[in-house]
Design a protein around this nucleic acid. Structure first.
Lengths: 212, 212, 212, 212
DNA sequence: AATGAATGAGCCTTCATTCAT
DNA sequence: GATGAATGAAGGCTCATTCAT
């Protein structure tokens, strides 16, 4: 999928070598943005780190912003995958739904450290660039849709309180996604395990009727 | 209010004229940052919009960043006040706690539109500037403390599920604060009223035992 | 004499208080220029250090440059005094002329450390400001005149080699003055005592016939 | 010569065009600094005079200071060469040592007019910039060493008074170098030929025993 | 005389982007 | 396709000096 997005670029390189060059630039950019942040990474730096000329940089990418957009796309799926990867319809009727929720929440909050710098940069861009915001919104919608289906399913099986699947999906998604962001951006230092527990409880109690 | 906050500044101007100039600059800055965002607003622009010289700008503010810090401080209390202004110990034993929660959540998500652009800018800075992050953290801590006391009180009165007040306060705070940010930054377009309802339910069910 | 020079200033203050203010400014300037150098000392700094307003500064001094000019004048005599204070006509026929020369040279190279920073600043200005250069030249001429008289006297008494008093006075003066500058500006780190000895020998052998 | 010195620079441009641009900048800088002095010559001026953009200026030179450092290096050898070019061990035993000294002194005081302004600027920088001072000191040390050898040689041949070669070399060097500076900076207007005569006599009588 | 707020020309520097080779 | 020298608009900031009070 990352590839399909990459393929949208201006002039789809027909040569393997081109692809390699483009990839080198992307990797160099990821690495530099990771370390220094987006604003402090110059196109010249990226080109140099990739071992190509600035000219080449602009052969492959319209501009710096567009490069970040490519990187964004590449990460997007990974992010949305991670958030709810471990909770599918098949788990809804498990004996311990809460454990599944917890697992899902945990994986959403974990392991993003690798791309922390990039995410921070994207977050930055989302703040001030409509197109970035747009894309993030689209990604979000997909996640929410998945969630809505799950909740609707659970509701049908009479496992839930009276909930509006639309609103519930929205809220649950936001809540998980935002807390994930909070930790990614280093905004929070509250013990993560306890936060995961609390958030899982919150979601669980919000959606699911207590067994009792 | 503007005055009391202004008065907190390091070099409190002794002359009324100074105060006016400083205020003009602050207002111009707020207005411009509001429209264009922080990065796209230059010190020269601000000075021009305020009808003063660049020199004056630098008489009153070390630099652009410091000005935003001042604006941040000015907004800080307002923000933290709004979030939980309508929920105090006295409301815990009301017949309808949920209504109180809803009211509180609603006021947190509402009425910030005036400073939407500024908050966006501050958010931007929080991302990359340690001092901004620190201040926001401090403000957050105060809010969380208030929440913790409330929850602890409710727990003592046996109104709650088994909750850890620390973690619960943290999560509830984040959840409300983040959703508020989501709306401020224009990230969400889900119907606000329904979101407020859903969030209130979530918090209510998470903390309070159902009457039944 | 310093006073007479000071009195040349634009509006000779008639009030004692004025004089004091002016003096405070001069002292503050000397102290600051001493520490930071001329360029890095701003008029505002000087006014602040003197405990007066910038406005007052400009009441007493046309501009920053003019203030340095005043300071220059004030130091000028001291400098030229020191250089040849200990060699007068009365010493020419001493048994040990060389000792007198040495003493004179030594006092020229010594004890200027106090105003090192100022001298450095003046030196700077002399480099790029015609008026400073002019004044220094005038001061120099006075010193050279004194020297010429001494040498002419010695020549008449048949104590010297065949010398042209004009040229000899010029060269001797330059040689002493320049080495003094070299030490003031920290340009040299050769042992001062030995340098003084060497310079004294040089001058002595140049002008005076050996006793033998 | 220009080339060999240019080649010493950190990032030796690989392209002929680069070299040309760099050279254009250097020449423009020399010309402007010559006319206006260092402080009054801005990077923009230099770029404009060189017919290149400011950007190019900063491609080739870290900053204005660094450019002057490059120019300094380029002049350094020339300066130290000129001062004592015409006095070598082979001349010590000439019938007329004084004539050799005079020739040497004369060449030290002459012919620098071309770079008068630059030297003034360098002098300026030496006053306030440690790195400039250091370089000048190093150049000086080399010259002094050469002189010391000469004097030591003459002493061994019993041609001199009782002199300490170290101190004598130091003093002689300073005396010539400083007077050269005096003329370069336009500080002196005493007839140069007579000054050269006087200085030569002084050095000659200081070091060498009279034949008689 | 004193004040100090206000001025604004001018400086240095960065960096995304272009284009001749 | 690749190169990298060249561009130049734009930004942040300083400080000597003025002038209304």
């Amino acid at each position: 999928m990352a590839d399909s997005l990459t393929a949208n670029q201006s002039s789809a390189p027909k040569q393997a070598r081109s692809k390699q060059t483009k990839e080198k630039i992307i990797q160099a950019a990821i690495s530099l943005i990771q370390q220094r942040g987006y604003e402090k990474t110059t196109s010249n730096d990226i080109a140099a780190a990739a071992g190509v000329s600035v000219g080449s940089f602009y052969t492959y990418f319209q501009d710096k912003r567009q490069l970040l957009l490519v990187i964004f796309d590449r990460l997007a799926d990974e992010i949305s995958k991670n958030i709810f990867e471990s909770i599918g319809p098949e788990h809804l009727f498990d004996s311990d739904v809460r454990a599944n929720i917890r697992h899902s929440v945990a994986s959403a909050l974990d392991d993003k450290g690798i791309f922390l710098g990039i995410q921070r940069a994207i977050h930055e861009m989302v703040m001030k660039d409509a197109e970035f915001a747009e894309r993030r919104k689209a990604i979000m919608q997909r996640s929410i849709s998945k969630l809505r289906e799950l909740i609707a399913l659970a509701k049908k099986a009479n496992l839930t309180w009276e909930v509006e699947p639309d609103a519930a999906a929205f809220i649950v998604h936001r809540v998980v996604f935002d807390l994930s962001q909070d930790y990614i951006t280093g905004f929070c230092d509250f013990d993560k395990e306890r936060a995961i527990d609390a958030l899982s409880d919150m979601i669980h109690r919000y959606v699911f009727k207590s067994k009792a």
